[in-house]
Design a protein around this nucleic acid. Sequence first.
RNA 1: GGAGUUGACCGGGUAGCCGCUGUGCGUCAAGCAUGGAGGAAAGUCCGGGCUUCACAGGGCAAAGUGCCAGGUAAUACCUGGGAGGCGUGAGCCUACGGAAAGUGCCACAGAAAAGAUACCGCCAUGGCGACAUGGUAAGGGUGAAAUGGUGCGGUAAGAGCGCACCGCGUUGAUGGUAACAUCAAUGGCAGGGCAAACCCCACUUGAAGCAAGACCAAAUAGAGAUCCUAAGGCGUGGCCCGCGUUGGAUCUGGGUUGGUCGCAAGAGGUGAUUGGUGACAAUCAUCCCAGAUGAAUGGCUAUCCACGACAGAACCCGGCUUACAGGUCGACUCCUUUU
Length: 142
Amino acid sequence: MPREERGSQLNCPKSLNGNSFPREIRLLKRAEFQSVFNQHQSVQARGIRLLARSGEPGPKLGFVIAKKQIRMAVQRNRIKRLGRESFRLNQQKLGSLHIIIMARGRVAQLSNQEIHTIFDTLWNKLIEKCKDLPSDSSISTG
RNA sequence: GGAGUUGACCGGGUAGCCGCUGUGCGUCAAGCAUGGAGGAAAGUCCGGGCUUCACAGGGCAAAGUGCCAGGUAAUACCUGGGAGGCGUGAGCCUACGGAAAGUGCCACAGAAAAGAUACCGCCAUGGCGACAUGGUAAGGGUGAAAUGGUGCGGUAAGAGCGCACCGCGUUGAUGGUAACAUCAAUGGCAGGGCAAACCCCACUUGAAGCAAGACCAAAUAGAGAUCCUAAGGCGUGGCCCGCGUUGGAUCUGGGUUGGUCGCAAGAGGUGAUUGGUGACAAUCAUCCCAGAUGAAUGGCUAUCCACGACAGAACCCGGCUUACAGGUCGACUCCUUUU
């Protein structure tokens, strides 16, 4: 996504955009995580992997980042913050997906700009993939 | 000015937009106001608080500490002092009780690594000589370490064999709270190192940890089977007592894994004054300064500069250790120059 477009989005009044990130659009319960793990579509790029389950009310986001993969807490926090921020700004497009973000060790070496770019492309890929499905009845192999 | 020692401190700033989270005010809605990571939050190496476990008594074992005095809630930390070592110096380093209670270990080299021994050498005797026997441990050589050091006497050659001084041990006196220091007398050469090897001596230690623990709500079956047993079982870190308690263990099947508290006003910070060499303590004034729980403390843009390191709270404190771009301040030492 080009820089200017994102900038113009930021300048929009909040009431029209709805770019907030309250508790209601996070995955909080163990059961919610399990349901995504049991049935999902997945896309990935450069160490970041998204798992998504469609057909749920509203978009929701959760993280699974293992300490084994990214050892330092500062790096884990950074990835989560960037993921949350990107999700917050793009949530309008994501409709009814429950998404889990996973990350591997090499992501810690990427800059904030690079991670933002990765997330932008991943959201689009995910929307494409879920659009192809006629319904959410198909069960993934994962 | 250069080189260095040491004690502290800071850890990008400003503005705009969009977010997250605690608290307060709100018609508990919209919203507004306000607070929101560190010096190490890290490693989890010590010490405490707090909580629970018959409130924990005795012995053994185990673990830890190890010059002295003080500080402290406490310590393995800190301060001051002593001793030894390093540095021209400011200063720095030290796990700094005991090796004539015992056991064990000391690679390679070397004659020999500890109560034993003699490779070369030196000396005496015998022999033409090669050499043999005896004496010796001064000199050489090996090694991280070799049986006190220097000098004189002594001797065939030598040797604490004798003497003087030093060193070592014992006793006394003086100074010091003490570690220890100084002085005097006296003993005789006992005598290698390692006690972060076992060990001995002195002192200390009950255990487990916030997933501790308390409460509320929901759900349920206070279920069934087998085995063992009252000189028993279970609990109390290991064992034996002691104490408390009264069936216990295993398997099958079922249910919950939500919320509130603990949880942030504290051995708290800052500033004075007083006491103390100091660590620190006392008194007064003043401030409230993160509190999440699938887990907040952020993202983007602009701009300035010295171009931003290591790194993220999870019950809380006090230390230690380790990591760290760059920068600021104080005190002191040495060298050089100028006056």
